[in-house]
Amino acid sequence: MTATGALPGPDGRLRCPWGLSAPDYLGYHDEEWGRPVLGDDALFERLSLEAFQSGLSWLTILRRRPAFRTAFDDFKLTAVAAYGPAERARLLADAGIIRNARKIDAVLANAR
């Protein structure tokens, strides 16, 4: 371990220890963590995923992110803002995402 707490990864590059704790974290650490999130849809996605993460690990959300993107039309604000009762019911039945009614309702309200 270096004085900064960083550890060498499989490629020899230094990374935060949490970034090496699971394969899913490696790409997130290298490509996303600590970088600005730009654009309304991208910010909406991050806000939504952070809301779903509440009470859970970020790793759980990262592993389900492809299913979330599919379920929420890639987090396109205009698409999600138009969701009605049928889409809400579909989301509540989607085993690929976190099926918490309050969190789903919050995402729909935030889109609107």
Rank of each mutant, 00 (worst) to 15 (best):
M1L: 13
A3R: 14
G5C: 09
A6H: 06
P8I: 07
G9E: 00
G9H: 01
D11V: 12
G12W: 05
G12N: 08
R13F: 13
L14M: 03
P17Q: 03
W18M: 10
L20V: 03
A22Y: 09
P23L: 14
L26G: 06
L26M: 08
L26Y: 07
G27P: 06
Y28T: 07
G34M: 01
R35L: 14
P36I: 02
L38H: 09
L43H: 00
F44E: 00
R46Q: 07
R46Y: 01
R46T: 01
S48H: 00
F52K: 01
F52E: 02
Q53L: 15
Q53A: 13
L59H: 09
L59F: 08
I61F: 13
L62H: 07
L62Q: 09
R63F: 14
R64T: 10
R65L: 12
R65Y: 09
P66A: 10
R69N: 03
T70I: 04
T70V: 05
A71D: 03
D74A: 13
D74M: 10
F75L: 09
T78P: 12
T78E: 13
A81G: 03
Y83H: 10
P85C: 07
P85I: 09
A86N: 07
E87V: 04
E87A: 06
R88C: 06
R88S: 02
L91D: 01
D94S: 10
A95K: 11
G96I: 15
G96C: 12
R99A: 07
A101F: 03
R102A: 15
K103Y: 13
A109T: 07
